[in-house]
Nucleic acid binder design. Structure first.
Lengths: 118, 118
DNA sequence: ACCCATAGTTCGGAACTTCGGAACTAACGG
DNA sequence: CCGTTAGTTCCGAAGTTCCGAACTATGGGT
């Protein structure tokens, strides 16, 4: 099995980050990895919101996040642990991730999933 | 001709903004509109960098930016004037656009077109 | 040592998106 | 009215994404 390629932080491109986080599922996965003490196994994210994500799609989502430079994945026995690269990315593109994560967070609050004030 | 639909600022979604700006051409167009006194005709942007953009692609890029809520387009005689909606978007998603535009700006500086320090 | 279960990856085809040339429409000037 | 300029629409080719099925890798149990 191939040894999980990660770009150097200098090679990380803004368009790759935006493309990766333009998908709400991936943005939610990334937010979860950051909040969950910066480590998360792939299988810990089997659904986003109420939507179940198939394994193959999930594998691809992690790959996109990894190759965008947003997470670092290490095989640890049978599972893969994912660390956010927040600090590196923050040093290279200050304010970018905070702006994006806050935007999704404030958007989630603004339209509830069910009816809220009928 | 259809009267150019613009979403209300409450209906603007983060994923649409990220998707719109994940394309470097569109990000450059948007940055240009903001810097150019917040008004810019479509035809003023015939190329991005050294790459010529066909009219139909350009028309589509403006449509994507418009429908993401990033710009406001008004027909003015034979041409269309585009205003950035920076302030509205900033009020809804603070720091988002600044983070993105800065990321692209700092990325442009970091990799010179020719070799620089051999 | 072997097999099984678990965790993730790869393959491949259907559905969707993007790109761009050609043809089109709309407004204005002469 | 015709020509020009500015932008839109159409449509086919090329590319991307999604997800089920088949596959590989690792570790535990017996």
């Amino acid at each position: 099995m191939r040894p999980l390629f990660h770009p150097a932080i200098e090679d990380v491109r803004p368009e790759a980050i935006l493309h990766a986080l333009a998908d709400p599922s991936r943005a939610a996965i990334f937010a979860k990895i950051m909040q969950a003490g910066c480590v998360e196994a792939c299988s810990a994210v089997s659904a986003v919101g109420d939507r179940v994500i198939p394994k193959s799609s999930l594998s691809n989502h992690f790959k996109v996040l990894r190759e965008a430079g947003l997470i670092r994945s290490e095989r640890h026995g049978v599972e893969v642990r994912n660390h956010s690269r927040w600090m590196e990315v923050e040093a290279r593109f200050p304010g970018l991730l905070a702006g994006i994560i806050n935007a999704y967070a404030s958007d989630e609050g603004s339209h509830s999933h069910a009816a809220e004030t009928p």
